[in-house]
Write a protein that binds this DNA or RNA. Structure first.
Lengths: 208, 208
DNA sequence: TACAACTATTCAATCGATTGATTAATTTTG
DNA sequence: CAAAATTAATCAATCGATTGAATAGTTGTA
């Protein structure tokens, strides 16, 4: 027996459409049609089109930070912590690049300030966790002194770039992030690269 | 004497509005109002709203590649070439972060395929130039062997991240890219970081 | 030089279509 | 029956685009 859950259907269709067409580019009629619900159901459940958007983002953002926080409190060296955080972060974003694109789009628009703040705060939280790990590693002497904010921009930027860029640009001619098998390979390759980069860049130079 | 150039006025207003509100979020009526031109002038000069968009992008993209190409043919070491290319690339993007945001937004939407291809090809060109430099450096033995595509994603991603992220997130608590004096400082800091990162990461390890 | 012919630019008005949202009526459910 | 869920129909507002006409500037011709 099919369990009809129009609310979930609407959210699912809306997320897909927002991801593909953007917020402004998606009409409430499209959402209704794709989800098989009547137009009024959108306002009935979510109040407005923006309400649907907020609900999607809230669901996704929630829990993004706990994972990082938990890792940062593990009994690991700073380098191990950092690499583990980066690995989790990369995996999370690359597993749903569409959503990441949508978040980025909304972040670069000063429209919808409520949503802007939500995404911004979510990012800021992740940043603080990583920053603390690196700062401590530097203080401890296990990391070279570097521009921490810029290094974080490098880590996040690399992940974001791989998630956002059209397949053919970033990964050579054969891999395509939209194909499920390739996606795993790309994630693996991205993580290996970031681990190598961070290790080489942060490890203090001994022969000096 | 004021020289009225409606065509230029429309382009100027449209670029500002597209940057602030996004393509879909900007109406032709807004463009007309802000530029002081009649609505039909938009279609008269550019054929359509999308025509305006194309014109803006074409103007900006043009010449982006020549500069890189010229550097890549200079009489410099591969490292010097790479750092110079990165410096130019970063400066170019950071000098007009709004436009870069707009390009990124449109690139993450599969809408407007003509524009998508234009931006994509422009990026691909820049990528090829950088890739060639690094590949040659590796072949020559002056660079460590690395995942070249991923390293380029790192360079471009870092620059993009600094250009796109809200001020308070990326550069600490005081600097703001929207303030002209700070912008120069941020660019300087970004370039210094990338040069340090690339030098440390690509320089072969001698004590092994 | 002078008048006609032509082209480029600008305008107000309006087109049909679509937007997000709301209404009131109906059906389903407990 | 009452509350919740769902529907079709419709709202005013706005969308991008087009119309036909008016104006300004240039060119051709005699």
């Amino acid at each position: 027996m099919e369990k009809a859950d129009k609310k979930a259907d609407i959210l699912e269709a809306a997320e897909r459409l927002f991801t593909e067409l953007g917020y402004e580019g998606t009409s409430t009629r499209q959402i209704a049609k794709e989800s098989g619900a009547n137009m009024s159901m959108i306002n009935y459940y979510f109040g407005s089109k923006e309400g649907v958007f907020m609900e999607i983002m809230s669901k996704r953002i929630f829990g993004f930070n706990e994972q990082l926080l938990s890792i940062s409190q593990d009994k690991l060296s700073h380098m191990e912590k950092l690499l583990k955080v980066v690995e989790n972060y990369a995996t999370r974003i690359l597993c749903n690049p569409g959503l990441h694109k949508m978040m980025h789009r909304e972040l670069t628009l000063s429209q919808r300030p409520e949503m802007f703040l939500k995404v911004k705060n979510s990012m800021a939280n992740n940043l603080v966790v990583i920053e603390k790990i690196i700062d401590e590693g530097i203080d401890e002497g296990s990391f070279r002194p570097v521009d921490v904010r810029m290094l974080i921009a490098t880590v996040m930027g690399t992940i974001s770039n791989v998630a956002i860029s059209p397949a053919k640009i970033t990964y050579g001619t054969t891999l395509d992030i939209n194909i499920e098998e390739d996606k795993a390979l790309i994630i693996e390759r991205l993580i290996a690269h970031l681990k190598d980069l961070l290790t080489v860049y942060l490890t203090p130079n001994n022969d000096k």
